[in-house]
Design a protein around this nucleic acid. Structure first.
Lengths: 213, 213
DNA sequence: GTCGGTATCTGAATAGTGTTCAGATTATGG
DNA sequence: CCATAATCTGAACACTATTCAGATACCGAC
């Protein structure tokens, strides 16, 4: 899709005094520095310097440093959702096999994102960004994609109705937890594929009228 | 040897100049401040002041602030394991029912810990403490307790051998992920009991010779 | 008991931080 | 074209982590 463009002004961004789109530039610079230094250890002044602007200029766009970090988080959630969307687009088809592959790839993308940039992952889930609507994932693209994947698994008979009920919850929490535990060194990297295997098995629970209540 | 300055050596803490056990006092004070302010926003000077000591005194026990925070993390992991041990001790018995209750309570304790003190939970899993032996959970008490719980579930016929294989991985990651997502506001608090229900169902997968390969 | 050595802690200093605010600079609407 | 608003600067303030020379209290040995 298109990038967040410079729509504010109708002319081209100046290079001299006025920056053009300082807000976005600050977010990008902050993202870059967080990737290197971690969400703690981020310096507001370093962000300003990277953009080539005075530290006080930041306060025209963000009330404080934490707000800037929070905005970085917003951007990261969008980026992750886009990456997941792209991953899903690579696996078309309505077969059970395709649905299973999509489901796996959705989790893998989540984990790869976390594992490639631990500091950005920590920023997203380390209490640095304030979630606006608590526990409300309507309109959350990533959640909707997961829902779609699970619906496909149900429609193709891969998972049972009883398991479908817990699909989002179980998948999201397990993938999220595995990402955290691997990134923080509590589990080896190879554990993630094992987890996906375990999730596949788990999701088949309740199938075949598995009697035992 | 005179009586006056003898016996006081290793036992009692001094109150005057020498603190007695400054190292532990600093860790405790840091823990207390992190609970209030979060792992970022922790001030070394505030820690020193709370103990009633000069900021530079800290550097006799820790090379820098991050090391102090890391030591707080070590303590928290021990505390969590102890809390889980106590929770398990309340539910004795070798029946399937007891084993199921223990398994559930183990996850609940993990989550309660996270949910009651979000800032401490963030300290543990937010990249603030350096894990010594990466991905090696031999000797990790919490992990051993989980293993024991799962063995009991297998022995009492609650879970299948095929599912047992993924028991630790699936349980730990799901509970960890749910704790994070709830603490950070992405899921409502009530979702955790739902997750435990889903986990119960998932764990029964592979039981009853559930044919479908 | 006194003395020397050592571990422990202080005080001051340095460099860097987030944040505020009066004012300089530039762009824009009337 | 000018007044007004938007944008950014520079200096200042209080605070931070960290270093280091030196003061203080303890310890074991004499």
């Amino acid at each position: 899709m298109s990038i967040t463009n410079v729509v504010r002004r109708k002319r081209v961004a100046r290079e001299n005094y006025h920056h053009g789109d300082l807000e976005a530039a600050l977010i990008d610079a902050a993202l870059d520095l967080v990737r290197q230094t971690g969400p703690d250890h981020l310096s507001l002044r370093a962000v300003a310097q990277q953009v080539g602007v005075s530290p006080s200029a930041v306060y025209h766009y963000f009330p404080d440093k934490d707000s800037l970090i929070s905005r970085v988080g917003d951007k990261l959630f969008i980026d992750l959702a886009n990456m997941q969307r792209e991953a899903l687009a690579q696996i078309p088809g309505i077969s059970a096999r395709a649905a299973k592959l999509r489901y796996r790839e959705l989790g893998r993308t989540y984990f790869r994102w976390a594992n490639k940039e631990p500091n950005l992952f920590r920023l997203m889930f380390g209490g640095f960004c304030k979630i606006e609507r608590e526990g409300d994932h309507q309109g959350n693209d990533a959640f909707l994609m997961l829902t779609k994947c699970l619906d496909d698994l149900l429609d193709t008979g891969v998972i049972s109705k009883s398991m479908r009920k817990y699909g989002e919850l179980l998948s999201w929490t397990a993938v999220q937890g595995a990402s955290t535990l691997i990134v923080e060194g509590h589990l080896p990297e190879a554990a993630f594929e094992d987890l996906l295997d375990g999730l596949d098995l788990a999701m088949r629970a309740g199938n075949m009228r598995a009697g035992s209540k």
